[in-house]
């Protein structure tokens, strides 16, 4: 009898235990509802808790909630909900904030400003280079360098900064060794839409004469408003094989994200002059979050400043000399920013 009770007890315990561990809600917690109101509230609160630029952009997110929450109902279609969410996110005016809805019926909304494309054409420049070497595909090189015909001016182009820092350590060093006997250099950052800030630091350090602070970054570390990590300090550090002769850095509205932290770093190098247009104006990293209905949203969780504590989010970095190419000029074969850079260097 005693044995029977024992066996029954342990069998019941086992069955109860198996029932317990197979219950997802109990062991893993509850998933939020996928209805429009729940999705909207999740989107809003995710930004409320994680977005790093409310202070910089002087936005009252609670006020924005009050404005938009009334427009959401559980009867609305996916597209209608997407429209309301997009409208709310547009108030951030942040190039690193976007929202995507999967297929069928894929949609993407970008919160940041859009600028005309076609203000820069690499092929136009390649026609003027007497010697050209590149790494990566012929039609879309990752790093390209050469000399302008009949001059001793070098040219270095970076498509993006998305490769690991070691890639740039190797290839930019090779490029600068090849260009070491030029008198000046044009460094084209107009194609750099983004990448890794560490790679930006590596490339900029090849043009540094001394160690200098160029950027401070910090990230949200809890849902509390303005609760950020300590500042992370970014410096340019002179490298062996550095190019310390005069450099003109070309920027435009297509220079974004890591392209802009690169521009911040290059500004600290004394020999560098910046010609072209403002940069895009989106600096912080932008990790993604998933919404209960399966949409994905990207947002800036950092606060990136220059060495003096100034933020250029939504503004962009101003060049030393503003020359904004138009798509029409470029399609007709004219690159005014490049022409100006050449004339400055030839005048040296």
């Amino acid at each position: 009898m005693n044995r029977f009770i024992k066996t029954s007890f342990f069998t019941s315990l086992l069955v109860y235990g198996l029932g317990l561990v197979s219950c997802n809600e109990l062991m893993l917690g509850k998933e939020p509802s996928r209805i429009p109101i729940s999705t909207f509230e999740y989107l809003w609160s995710t930004f409320n808790d994680h977005y790093g630029l409310f202070e910089v952009k002087q936005l009252d997110w609670e006020e924005i909630h009050a404005e938009f929450s009334g427009q959401v109902s559980n009867q609305m279609s996916d597209d209608e909900l997407f429209d309301v969410c997009s409208e709310m996110l547009s108030r951030l005016n942040d190039g690193h904030v976007w929202l995507v809805k999967p297929n069928p019926g894929f949609r993407r909304f970008d919160s940041g400003p859009s600028y005309p494309e076609g203000t820069f054409d690499l092929d136009l420049i390649r026609e003027h280079l007497s010697e050209e070497t590149f790494f990566g595909p012929t039609e879309n090189p990752l790093v390209l360098f050469g000399r302008f015909k009949n001059t001793n001016i070098g040219y270095l182009y970076l498509d993006h900064l998305g490769e690991a820092p070691g890639f740039y350590e190797k290839h930019v060093k090779t490029a600068l060794a090849e260009l070491a006997n030029t008198d000046e250099l044009i460094l084209d950052a107009r194609g750099i839409e983004g990448g890794d800030d560490r790679s930006a630091q590596v490339v900029a350090s090849f043009f540094a004469k001394e160690t200098k602070l160029y950027m401070k970054t910090r990230f949200k570390q809890s849902a509390k408003p303005a609760d950020f990590s300590n500042w992370i300090l970014w410096e340019v550090n002179p490298k062996s094989g550095a190019y310390t002769k005069p450099v003109v850095l070309l920027t435009d509205r297509g220079t974004g994200s890591a392209g802009e932290t690169f521009t911040l770093a290059m500004r600290q190098n004394e020999t560098v002059e910046i010609i072209g247009n403002f940069t895009y104006g989106a600096f912080s990293d932008n990790p993604k979050w998933e919404l209960p209905n399966g949409w994905i949203v990207a947002m800036s969780t950092g606060d990136f400043r220059d060495q003096n504590g100034n933020s250029y989010e939504g503004i962009g970095l101003e060049p030393d000399e503003l020359i904004a190419n138009t798509p029409g000029e470029v399609s007709e074969g004219t690159d005014r920013a490049l022409t100006r850079a050449l004339s400055i260097l030839l005048g040296n």
Partner: peptide, 11 residues
């Protein structure tokens, strides 16, 4: 981390 970003100079 809370920010979902892992980025430090030279590391």
């Amino acid at each position: 981390p809370y920010s979902n970003v892992v980025s430090q100079p030279e590391k």
